[in-house]
Deep mutational scan, measured.
Amino acid sequence: MPSETPQAEVGPTGCPHRSGPHSAKGSLEKGSPEDKEAKEPLWIRPDAPSRCTWQLGRPASESPHHHTAPAKSPKILPDILKKIGDTPMVRINKIGKKFGLKCELLAKCEFFNAGGSVKDRISLRMIEDAERDGTLKPGDTIIEPTSGNTGIGLALAAAVRGYRCIIVMPEKMSSEKVDVLRALGAEIVRTPTNARFDSPESHVGVAWRLKNEIPNSHILDQYRNASNPLAHYDTTADEILQQCDGKLDMLVASVGTGGTITGIARKLKEKCPGCRIIGVDPEGSILAEPEELNQTEQTTYEVEGIGYDFIPTVLDRTVVDKWFKSNDEEAFTFARMLIAQEGLLCGGSAGSTVAVAVKAAQELQEGQRCVVILPDSVRNYMTKFLSDRWMLQKGFLKEEDLTEKKPWWWHLRVQELGLSAPLTVLPTITCGHTIEILREKGFDQAPVVDEAGVILGMVTLGNMLSSLLAGKVQPSDQVGKVIYKQFKQIRLTDTLGRLSHILEMDHFALVV
């Protein structure tokens, strides 16, 4: 994948999101292997301009796509893939009243899908469409860049269908997702969380590099694949309309690839034109409109599966009536509230959605109805927002919020430890010299600072030695090549209790 991002070429006709291997024109390309080798690009942008032909009021008969309808489940399912879809609609009884809503608040519980998330729908649909058009064949390999849930859905379907599955996901995604993927037989590649989507090191860039190296491999490409919004247009939206008897006044959905909100909203605009569509985008993402909503100094966020630093091709923002931004604290607070007060075992993005819903639905009156999409299960986040310690460490809970008995030293300040200034190293000294210094002084790690004293990161003896043994660096290389740029900081005025929580999850903390 090139470091400079080429513009994806656009073909003359058809839909841009065809499933299957992508040609340089962004659509299915038939021909000899030699032709494909000559024409197939190194990668295709996940934010390529959409060429979708959908228009409100256009006859369904003019759609270029294969459409399906929700099917009634048999008493005995032939395999677990038949437990994807037909998820329950559940009334939220307490939270709406707590925040003064007059309307009825309903939750579409997508964590009841077989793999635990709304992404099971698009995973199965992308595979079925690729099999139907002859792209996927027995023994082929599926590769997908994902925040985890699409990966789980694909790995689940691949396990049943017999495909090899490789999932490329950023490091910030939970260990629970990784464990589930491994249990399903998927191979996992992790990428830096802070890598831009168009960087060769991003999950998108690495996935395309693997595709170019592995024979008979395919990126189904949830960011561009029409099967993504079509899955929701054909099934999720129809289920909502049936469950609500066609009567709903507002739908609120958090947005990642945009397939969920695009597919549902398009069908609702056709069948229930008075329904307002509300999009939820986390602070630090750029999906919301108008652009002024996205202006923030924050560039990272903890909530998973929603928000991006690019506009995915499948996201149709014209069908969203209003956007709201959400933050991590309210997302996790509301997710825990949904679990504790409503018994809905949902993930953090569901918290984002409901946090926005109780604001947006203030305009609705008694007798009206708001539906929220709860995308995934708490299963993926047992060591994250479900953990009091994690919430404390991230600053989303305060010590006084917890009532468990603490040891005698818990409320003492870090400054009472009488710490001395640490050994520091410059980023320009060599790895070999740094190892000598650390061994001589008896230290395992040291902060790396520039000549102005600005902290650049941390270097550890173990990481340097393993990097040297693996051949990633040489003793003569500058130590700046092996620094940890993500590390926890703590102030002298913070409590030892807070430091204790940090050290339970990290090997060190830097006192500043």
Score class of each variant (00 low, 15 high):
E4G: 09
T5S: 11
P6Y: 14
P6S: 15
V10K: 15
G11Y: 15
T13C: 02
T13N: 10
G14C: 02
P16N: 02
S19E: 02
P21R: 05
H22V: 15
G31E: 11
S32F: 07
S32G: 06
P33L: 08
K39G: 04
E40S: 14
L42W: 06
L42V: 02
W43D: 02
I44W: 02
R45M: 08
P46F: 05
A48T: 14
Q55L: 06
Q55D: 02
G57V: 13
G57R: 12
R58Q: 12
P59V: 02
A60V: 10
S61I: 04
P64F: 11
H65V: 05
H65P: 06
T68V: 11
T68I: 13
A69V: 15
A69L: 05
K72W: 02
S73W: 09
I76K: 14
L77P: 02
L77S: 04
D79L: 06
I80V: 12
K82D: 02
M89A: 05
V90E: 02
R91F: 09
I95H: 05
G96L: 02
G96F: 02
G100H: 02
L105F: 11
C109R: 02
A114R: 06
G115S: 08
I122E: 04
L124R: 06
M126L: 08
I127A: 10
I127L: 09
D129N: 15
D129I: 06
D129E: 13
A130I: 02
R132W: 04
L136F: 08
P138T: 12
P138D: 05
T141W: 15
I142R: 02
S147A: 05
G148A: 13
G148S: 06
N149L: 06
T150A: 02
T150M: 02
G151L: 02
I152T: 08
I152R: 02
I152D: 04
G153C: 05
L154I: 04
A159N: 08
G162T: 05
Y163T: 02
R164D: 02
I166N: 08
M169Q: 15
M169P: 13
S174P: 02
S175W: 08
V178R: 15
D179G: 09
R182P: 02
A183W: 06
L184I: 10
V189A: 12
P192S: 10
N194R: 02
A195L: 02
F197S: 13
P200H: 11
G205R: 10
V206L: 10
A207N: 02
R209K: 11
L210S: 02
L210R: 04
K211L: 09
P215Y: 09
L220K: 07
D221P: 02
Q222C: 02
Y223F: 08
R224L: 04
N225F: 04
P229F: 02
L230F: 09
A231T: 15
Y233K: 06
Y233W: 13
D234K: 13
T235N: 02
L241C: 06
Q242A: 05
C244S: 02
D245L: 04
D245V: 09
D245C: 14
G246R: 12
L248V: 15
D249W: 02
M250E: 02
A253R: 02
A253P: 05
V255C: 11
G256A: 07
G259V: 06
T260E: 02
I261K: 02
I261E: 06
I261L: 07
T262P: 02
I264L: 12
I264H: 07
I264V: 11
A265L: 04
A265W: 06
K267F: 11
K271Y: 06
R276E: 02
R276G: 05
